[in-house]
Design a protein around this nucleic acid. Structure first.
Lengths: 370, 370
DNA sequence: GTGTACTTTGTAAGCGGTTACATCGCGCAC
DNA sequence: GTGCGCGATGTAACCGCTTACAAAGTACAC
């Protein structure tokens, strides 16, 4: 059922030329007489020849493959019906990356790193020989290991801590996002006491968001309730149970909960409703990401829009740029975010075409080292 | 900044053995004296040697990579804020596949086929030399092309038309799903006239679902309104606008709309609300997939649960089984679905822990050819 | 001590391409 | 007619690893 496919030797023989000429014709190099070229191409056609990318990669060192590595939480996808952690956003990034890669002629090699499995590093290293560059999502490995890998192939860090000596870093502007959110909550709604729902522990994005929010609130004379920083795990189920626990704990609620992503916000709203609280009348809730479905929720979610697809695309662009030597290494790129005001913060919006008031920031390239 | 990494030659030299011995030690083959083996491994350690998988693949024919190809709709991910078509479900499949592949030691090579770009076939063929097997999602290419590729490497079709002479097909039990849904809508709620919201045109899954629904309703004395088969595109925005158009057209609505997936159901509910109809009081709506967020909607969505992750896992398993010669080729595997009754069909549920009444089917292996 | 049968190790030929370098033909100026 | 230069093609080495086959080493029985 599986034949062994024709090689360039077969093609050369059939066309009556040497494999060097066949190779040149295949790569449409100059210095091949048009008539010869035609002969070779005809032979390829007849034999249904497909160049073997692995052999080509071994010999030329160019694989036309980009690696993308993301974190997988322990039980992800193993249990029927369990909510998949951090789904959605990561996937959008992946899609963006894949689609851009395809445009540029690359494929994407996906690889997940189990978060409590240190063997991830060795499988990462293994990729090193098969791909032309690596995109690492959200703190897959430590800076030291990044440096080690980056000595072998170009690396782009996505949503990492924000700085790396050895790799290009691309992240979203969490600071600007939290500033505009704080501005809105404080100035427009007059909220003074705010809570936060965090993603997975040690996630750089989640961390950056708390810190930025704390600063932004402080600057505006409001406060982040340290006791109302709830630990969840990026999932709506996690958001729901974190909020249930908070309610069980009792005590006065803050006027608003800022959530580190939309899924958790949805879970939080659900738990609040279940506990007898109306959103936004009793407590306001905001999200982050602006995933497609949030606008269909009730109340429609006020959130921060970031383009995961763009993150992925920019990552691929940056990587490919390093191949061409176009880009300086160790650059940090910060992508813009946009405040999307809908109803869950307490604003009233036109229900017919939900929430599109915005307060944005622009794309910033933060610095260049050599 | 990028050194050329050590090869097995360097290792061999350092350990004072031949490359053959180094290779044997690397692959922990028998017939290597323990002391020699130790020497070699020590050398590998000192040099930070990482085997080059490409060279290994070229020489052994085994790449430890599985290809997964999916459809990308035209504008997917290109426009900031545009809803990503068919997101979620496909991604869950991808995650399931990746996670299972990783368990078995494989990586996943992602590749999307642009739906109106016929060059997809050639890029698919290119993969043929780099991967050990291919998973094709939802009608990426025609049967003839499948056959062509399957002559070169093993192929698994996911959610395809359901039968292929040349490849293993894995799909979800749309018939059983629609039967239990029809049963519920007709017997429990007494609905007689039903509408349908379809996914992308020519999608085998969407098609199978309409047909199965039509049959199932007919058998129970109810009817699928042919004029209420709305064409959408798997997205909630698509569902919303399809329903808006339907409402604009006027005429009496059916008692229920069955949607080919959850996202569209959410859009449909939104449009119905906007049009002044209450769900489920005026019109019932059901979904398909049971994506994580649906249970947090209001009303919580009655839907069909299928495990995308399992689809992905089973696909990988089937592929790997063919490598081992364990599996007969051209087998069709049908995965079970489960009716999840929540509120959008008109049932009332416990709001505290939403909807888990079920009517399932079991895993079926449909046939074996040789 | 020598022969036999294993084990352990080495040599070298691929795997399917790319590419440096050598070779061949041919047109053209002299 | 000879020599030169250049474009078109061929030869063979190489990319880093696996593996068939040959060779060498070891152990044991005689």
């Amino acid at each position: 059922m599986v034949d062994s496919p024709p090689t360039i030797y077969d093609v050369a023989k059939r066309a009556g030329v040497s494999i060097a000429t066949a190779s040149r014709a295949l790569n449409s190099l100059a210095s091949v007489r048009p008539s010869t070229r035609a002969k070779v191409l005809a032979a390829m056609d007849e034999l249904e020849f497909v160049p073997n990318m692995v052999a080509r990669g071994l010999s030329s060192g160019k694989h036309w493959i980009l690696g993308l590595v993301y974190m997988r939480s322990v039980d992800d996808g193993n249990v029927l019906g369990v909510e998949e952690a951090s789904l959605l956003y990561t996937d959008i990034v992946i899609r963006g990356a894949e689609s851009r890669a395809a445009e540029l002629g690359y494929s994407l090699l996906l690889s997940s790193a189990d978060e409590n499995h240190p063997s991830g590093m060795s499988s990462l290293l293994r990729l090193t020989g098969s791909v032309d560059g690596l995109i690492l999502l959200d703190r897959v490995i430590g800076e030291q290991d990044v440096a080690f890998i980056a000595r072998r192939i170009p690396v782009v860090l996505l949503a990492g801590k924000g700085d790396s000596e050895s790799a290009i870093t691309i992240r979203v502007d969490n600071e600007q996002a939290m500033r505009s959110l704080a501005e809105h909550l404080v100035s427009v709604h007059g909220y003074q006491r705010i809570g936060f729902v965090a993603g997975a522990s040690e996630s750089p994005d989640s961390d950056a968001r708390v810190h930025a929010l704390r600063d932004a609130l402080r600057q505006r004379g409001a406060t982040l309730n340290e006791n109302d920083i709830l630990d969840a795990d990026w999932t709506s189920a996690g958001g729901e149970s974190a909020m249930r626990e908070r309610l069980a704990r009792g005590g006065p609620l803050p006027e608003a909960f800022v959530c580190a992503n939309d899924q958790m916000a949805i879970g939080v709203v659900y738990a609040l409703n279940a506990g007898g609280f109306k959103v936004p009348d009793d407590v306001a809730v905001t999200g982050f990401d602006d995933i497609a479905l949030t606008r269909y929720f009730s109340p429609p979610l006020t959130t921060i829009r970031q383009s995961g697809a763009m993150l992925g695309e920019v990552a691929v662009d940056a990587l490919v740029a390093t191949f061409n030597g176009t880009e300086d290494i160790a650059r940090t790129i910060v992508l813009p975010t946009e405040l999307v005001v809908r109803a869950s913060c307490g604003c009233t919006t036109d229900t017919a075409s939900p929430g599109d008031a915005r307060g944005g920031s622009t794309m910033v390239i933060e610095g260049e080292r050599t």
